[in-house]
Design a binder for these strands. Structure first.
Lengths: 242, 242
DNA sequence: AATGTTATAATGTACAAACATATAAATATT
DNA sequence: AATATTTATATGTTTGTACATTATAACATT
């Protein structure tokens, strides 16, 4: 059997099952409409209960990745050729692809107490300190983005890490934290003085503002990121299918 | 007891429970952070099993409406009323969800010759006319978006259609054109005078600019859409997984 | 050949029961 | 008073079981 589930792992079975499903449905056969093994059978193969398996399938159905039909079976939703990991390049990698060399203008790490929103997202109390990282980056002579990142204390970052390395690689290799899901909100604003100063633009100039909520495999929050991009310096691309 | 569940109804209990939860969490008390009754207790009150109740709660948690915390309880998510990446709602539907009534300020349809970019995207020659639709929309007294849409001549639109109807519904029902894939580019700009005028803002004010390339099932181009959104009036949300 | 009926195989709903885990609160220890 | 330990309580995980529902497939009837 190609795929299997580790009953000794501390990772919940339904999470393992979910991850596993995400993998197997990459298989061209399934992408082309082949039915998955039926629930009873698949549960047997994975040596988990049908209920647990359904817990996993449910999430993918809810996401629109799988389609269930009574008496027929479950198959991969057509057209959802998955995810496009395009989105998941780090900033420096992203820029490298475009042939832009990146300069760091400012870099600052500190421990701060979270505000209401942040504490809420991290599901921690407001007196628990979190690591804040600020960065101003751009091309030589022209800063064009100001980042603020907050990291969940659970991860165990100290603030002394080598942040020159790509961030998600660092988290993955040294802290076994795998960023899996990101929810982003993008809007346009007029730059406040503080932001304008960082980006060396006039007060009130347009900026693209991106809020990013990042989660690990278990959908636990790991990073909250704010990005202020100087207008015209950044284009956000999205591809979506229904 | 104020709320209850009908065990004789053909509607599944977990669906009833979900609806009921949606109602009770409207209660100002809960909106303000009061904890819901714990699962065991609530299940008893509703005379359903805890499993069934959890099925209902899970959906709301997944939607970001409820927050669960061990040993503490479950409460209504404060603040960030997440708008789900329902990317495929039409503009008016999208706004309806947010409780905003839409007014049309300008509406104009014309036949134009495409520029290089457009002809290229549509894969037609530059002497072939295409239908152009312009719209300024917003809430009463405040226009906040200027749309320009170009439609592929293949579709067969005449320009006399009832554009009050949701666009993608119209295309689907009357022209059997199903929008399936969209590629978007989002950026921030300073408004040019022409755009500023449409949105009744000062020249150079920030706008969110969205280019949208829409394709049908066969990945054939059907629409090219430009949207200029007044800053702070529009948030674009994306959810991505790797 | 078209229509109605029945069996069957898949998902859908629901429950009860047990144990795991995280954490707030109470208590004991230093 | 500060710190460590215990306890209680909420959610989290998982199983086994049973029956309902639905849509297809097989069959029978007209």
């Amino acid at each position: 059997m190609k795929y299997s589930i580790d009953h000794k792992s501390p990772i919940p079975l339904h999470v393992q099952a979910e991850a596993l499903l995400r993998e197997i449905i990459e298989d061209p056969d399934y992408q082309n409409g082949k039915l998955l093994p039926n629930e009873v059978e698949l549960a047997r193969q994975l040596a988990i209960s049908r209920t647990t398996l359904r817990q996993a399938i449910n999430k993918l159905v809810y996401e629109g990745l799988l389609i269930r039909k009574k008496r027929t079976g479950t198959k991969v939703a057509q057209g959802t050729v998955s995810s496009k990991s395009n989105n998941w390049l780090s900033f420096s990698q992203e820029m490298k692809v475009r042939g832009i060399t990146i300069k760091n203008f400012e870099f600052h790490v500190s421990w701060v107490t979270p505000d209401e929103t942040l504490a809420n997202f991290f599901e921690i109390k407001t007196d628990r300190k979190v690591l804040k990282m600020e960065r101003v980056r751009g091309r030589p002579g022209e800063p064009f983005v100001y980042f603020i990142s907050y990291f969940h204390p659970r991860i165990g970052l100290t603030g002394d890490e080598d942040f020159k390395r790509p961030l998600y690689e660092l988290l993955e290799n040294d802290y076994s934290v795998v960023a899996t899901l990101s929810k982003e909100e993008i809007s346009a604003h007029a730059a406040e003085p503080y932001i304008a100063n960082k980006l060396r633009i006039a007060d009130g100039s347009p900026v693209l503002f991106r809020k990013r909520f990042v989660f690990d495999q278990g959908e636990r929050p790991i990073e909250y990121n704010l990005g202020y991009y100087k207008a015209d310096s950044f284009v956000y691309t999205v591809e979506s299918r229904r």
